[in-house]
């Protein structure tokens, strides 16, 4: 168990803000990266806290095609998607997390789930306007450590 009752309660409270279902596709590989299995178990337990959270566990080697299409190039890797409903496709905003989402990063992961669910960036109107005119793709990578 990763979450005691108090933490589980706090997470459920945060997930009260979910609007659309969210799909977490987690890639792991027990032999190559035993720690990636820990992330898989963490997310599977997280998925029990709200029915709008769908956790798909995939093997990085067996499901290599899926990993490539989701641009998950490292494990443990998590693609955070807005789940399609009634036959609609999932919406991929390009949000990924790699590594162990612990401590501060766990909070960021929870926030990311809520933000993907709402589809609301919360950015200022002038930022949104500038981004609408963006002519080329830009990939952001934010490196952190557990603190």
């Amino acid at each position: 168990m990763f979450f005691d009752d108090e933490v589980a309660g706090q997470i459920k409270e945060r997930f009260a803000d979910l609007v659309h279902p969210v799909k977490l596709v987690v890639f792991s590989q027990a032999l190559q990266h035993p720690e990636s299995e820990e992330v898989k178990r963490l997310l599977e337990e997280l998925g029990t806290l709200d029915p709008r959270l769908i956790v798909e566990s995939k093997n990085f080697i067996i499901d290599a095609e899926s990993a490539a299409s989701l641009k998950v190039h490292h494990i443990p890797g998590i693609a955070i998607l807005r789940a399609g409903v009634d036959g609609a496709s999932d919406i991929d905003y390009g949000v990924r997390f790699f590594g162990l989402p612990m401590q501060y990063d766990f909070g960021v992961l929870i926030d990311a789930i809520v933000d993907v669910s709402t589809g609301e960036s919360g950015l200022a109107p002038e930022t949104l306007e500038a981004l609408r005119n963006l002519q080329a793709p830009v990939h952001l990578q934010v490196f952190s450590t557990p603190t």
């Binding site: 490292h74 905003y93 949000v95 997390f97 963006l134 934010v142 490196f143």
Partner: peptide, 27 residues
């Protein structure tokens, strides 16, 4: 990291990876 994710949500031209770097010394 959350801000980068929010940029990705706001624009289909932006993608954002959060990387807890301890497990990725090569990166």
């Amino acid at each position: 990291m959350r801000l980068a994710y929010r940029f990705a949500i706001a624009s289909d031209k932006i993608t954002a990876d959060g990387v807890e770097v301890t497990g990725f010394p090569d990166l």
